[in-house]
């Protein structure tokens, strides 16, 4: 049994999404508890990936592929959770690129880093209107929004998003973090956001702070 957890962890560490999915399916076939598979297998693996990245041994692709392996296996294991079983997460984050902006990679990197650090991430994609962020927050009961904008013309949408949250009565419940090449700390403060991060690593630290969780 513990052998299977180790294998799941190893598939994440080695960055083998296909293996992770096959192992998750096999684990359920064997009747193993899906929550144990997540906490004793996948989570241990992604923690190790995080350590290897922090120590400089792993580079970005190893980190991303490790997180992909975890995400793909979670898609098998999470639907199998029964009753009030729930994976422990730091916080749930809705992530997206604002309306009119098709830039994906920065936002995706942040999502991967957050996933690797124990956050649940709902990535709603690119070119998303403020209403889509609001709907997603309601749907997954998120407490943090990450909004990305790569253009000086679209960064204004970040302000509109905050207004939309206000109008929906969600502003007190949800913290908003903003990022993207033209965005600055000063701009974030001006539009009333809760924080700005200039890269994916600082985005994780910011998300920990906003979730009021220990870094």
């Amino acid at each position: 049994m513990s052998d299977m957890f180790e294998k799941l962890a190893q598939a994440v560490i080695d960055g083998e999404p296909e293996d992770a999915v096959a192992l998750a399916t096999e684990a359920l076939d064997q009747g193993l508890d899906p929550l144990d598979c997540i906490t004793k297998g996948l989570t241990k693996g992604i923690q190790k990936v995080g350590e290897l990245f922090a120590s400089g041994e792993y580079y970005l692709p190893e980190l991303i592929i490790g997180a992909d392996a975890m995400k793909d296996a979670l898609e098998i294991l999470e639907p199998a959770l029964v009753g009030d079983q729930k994976r422990d997460v730091v916080a749930t984050v809705v992530l997206g690129t604002v309306q009119g902006d098709l830039h994906e990679i920065g936002k995706t990197l942040v999502g991967t880093m957050l996933t690797a650090n124990g956050f649940r991430v709902k990535d709603i994609g690119v070119d998303q209107p403020a209403s889509a962020f609001v709907e997603a927050v309601k749907e997954v009961d998120a407490t943090i929004i990450g909004a990305s904008a790569l253009l000086t013309t679209t960064m204004l949408q970040q302000e509109k998003l905050i207004q939309a949250l206000d109008e929906a009565g969600l502003r007190q419940k949800v913290k908003v973090m903003v990022g993207g090449a033209p965005v600055t700390d000063e701009f974030a403060k001006r539009i009333g956001a809760d924080g700005y991060a200039e890269d994916a690593i600082s985005a994780v630290n910011l998300a920990y702070r906003l979730a009021d969780a220990p870094v």
């Binding site: 970005l60 692709p61 991303i64 592929i65 990679i105 995706t108 990197l109």
Partner: peptide
């Protein structure tokens, strides 16, 4: 089009 290469094993092999 529109995707990214970071999660490709080819990238993992060559990016270092």
């Amino acid at each position: 089009p529109g995707g990214h290469f970071l999660s490709q094993k080819h990238t993992r092999k060559h990016m270092r």
